[in-house]
Design a protein around this nucleic acid. Sequence first.
DNA 1: CTTCATACCTAGGCAGTCTAGGTATCAGCT
DNA 2: AGCTGATACCTAGACTGCCTAGGTATGAAG
Lengths: 108, 108
Amino acid sequence: MKTGQLKGNLDLVLLAVLSGGPLHGYAVIAGLRDRSEGAFDLPEGTVYPALHKLERDGLVRSSWDDSGGRRRRTYEITPRGERALACQREQWLTFVHGVNSVLAAVTP
Amino acid sequence: MKTGQLKGNLDLVLLAVLSGGPLHGYAVIAGLRDRSEGAFDLPEGTVYPALHKLERDGLVRSSWDDSGGRRRRTYEITPRGERALACQREQWLTFVHGVNSVLAAVTP
DNA sequence: CTTCATACCTAGGCAGTCTAGGTATCAGCT
DNA sequence: AGCTGATACCTAGACTGCCTAGGTATGAAG
């Protein structure tokens, strides 16, 4: 890295985006770009495998929608995913606090 | 991760600790543990190679101190390191802002 | 004189992300 | 009708950053 843009917080932001309601994969990427004000523009090769892993872990579930010719896979956060999100959010806040504490002594 | 505790911000926190004044390697680890309020307790196998890389990149310089029988290597941040610190600090703040924006919509 | 803390080091492994390639549909342009 | 770009999905393998696990050696404390 630059451990990639997300530095180990990919699951957190994906779950956060999905907590706003079900989205298909491509829309997750767009949603993340919008909600981060352009800061996070992730390649598909990052997001799709991550979503698959979240599904394997039971944090999201997906369903295929083939109506309209173009196939889409819609992802939805599970109750387990909601709990994981809350937990990872706490860890994120702790982490930020830790780094900021270290940075606090740096000449402002 | 948990790609380790530092999620790609190891250089940043090391430079931050060293910006407070020269320290030898082991003291860097202790300083980081203290200043992060215990949040970051890094193994030596993480810190030493990272310090070596920072030196290769010219962001810190080191000097050996063999007085007293026990050899110590003291690290000091360079002007280039100070600039890198300022830059990485900005990037850190941007990153935090990005994640927080994404998290903002999550049920508080 | 053994044990623990200090103090340094490296090789190799593991995990998370990205690169680079692939398929297919649909809208707009010429 | 054919081309181009956006949409929409996918995977294998590379890259990179941190950690594990091992090593050496000194000094202080019991």
